[in-house]
Nucleic acid binder design. Structure first.
Length: 205
DNA sequence: TCTACGATTTACT
DNA sequence: GTAAATCGTAGAA
C-alpha cells in the first residue's frame, strides 16, 4: 500500500470538543472540496474560535437561535456558513456537543491541490499567497456558499477534512480575533490561532 | 415594513 | 492610511 499520501478523514469525535481545542488542532489539517470530481485541497493555517452563549463575539451569544445560527446548535461536525457584507461567505466548523453553539472560523489556508482552479475563481489574487489568505477569499476560491450550510463534514463527499499522515511541524501562536470590536470584554480574547510566520496567513503580526 | 450594520476585500489617495 | 461595494440578518417600530 502507498502510505506516503495516505490521509485519515476526521470523524465526529474530533469535532465534538471545545472550540478552543478544535481551533488549535485544525491547524495543519487538510480541507478538501470536491467539485465535479476534482479535488481542491488546502492546508489550514489560521483559525478563530467562537465559543457559544457566553461569547459576545459569537453569533450564538446568549443562545441567540435564529435561521442563521440554527446549525451551530447541532452536534459538532457540520459546516456553519453565513453571508456577510453583501458579498462574502464565511466557512465555520461547528464544534462541541448539541446545544453548545460553538464554531471555528477557517480564516486562511495554503493551496495544495487544484491550485489552477482556485486561481480561476480568484483572478484578483496576485500570487499563490493571496489565494486563501482570508475567510472570504478562501470561500471564493473553493466555491463555498450557502448551499453547503449544515453540510455533514464527517459523512459527505463534497466537503470534508483529513489528517495528513506526515504533518509539517510549525510553531503555533495566538492573538486577538479580527474585526469583532463590538464584542466588548470578549474582543481581546486570544482565540485566533495560526502558524507563526507562515506566509499564507491573512495578516502577519 | 423600516433601519443599521457586519467574524471582508478591494481599489484608491 | 481611507472608503466603497452590496445585501441578508436581527431587532425595533
Amino acid at each position: 500500500m502507498f502510505l506516503g499520501g495516505m490521509k485519515l478523514r476526521l470523524g465526529y469525535d474530533f469535532y465534538r470538543r471545545d472550540a478552543l481545542i478544535v481551533a488549535k488542532e485544525l491547524l495543519g489539517m487538510h480541507l478538501v472540496r470536491v467539485i465535479d470530481g476534482k479535488r481542491l485541497v488546502c492546508r489550514i493555517v489560521e483559525t478563530e474560535a467562537y465559543r457559544g452563549p457566553e461569547d459576545k463575539g459569537c453569533h450564538a451569544y446568549n443562545n441567540r437561535r435564529t435561521g442563521r445560527t440554527e446549525v451551530m446548535f447541532r452536534p459538532g461536525g457540520c459546516a456553519y456558513i453565513y453571508f456577510i457584507y453583501g458579498m462574502y461567505y464565511m466557512l465555520n466548523i461547528v464544534a462541541a456537543a448539541a446545544d453548545e453553539p460553538q464554531a471555528v472560523l477557517i480564516r486562511a489556508g495554503q493551496p495544495l491541490e487544484g491550485v489552477e482552479l482556485m486561481q480561476a475563481r480568484r483572478p484578483k489574487a496576485g500570487s499563490r499567497y493571496q489565494l486563501l489568505n482570508g475567510p472570504g477569499k478562501l470561500c471564493q476560491a473553493l466555491d463555498i456558499d450557502l448551499s453547503l450550510n449544515g453540510y455533514d463534514l464527517a459523512a459527505g463527499e463534497e466537503l470534508f477534512l483529513e489528517r495528513p499522515m506526515e504533518q509539517i511541524r510549525e510553531p503555533i501562536t495566538q492573538s486577538k480575533r479580527i474585526n469583532i470590536d463590538y464584542a466588548e470584554e470578549w474582543k481581546d480574547k486570544p482565540w485566533r490561532f495560526y502558524f507563526k510566520g507562515n506566509p499564507y496567513v491573512s495578516r502577519p503580526d
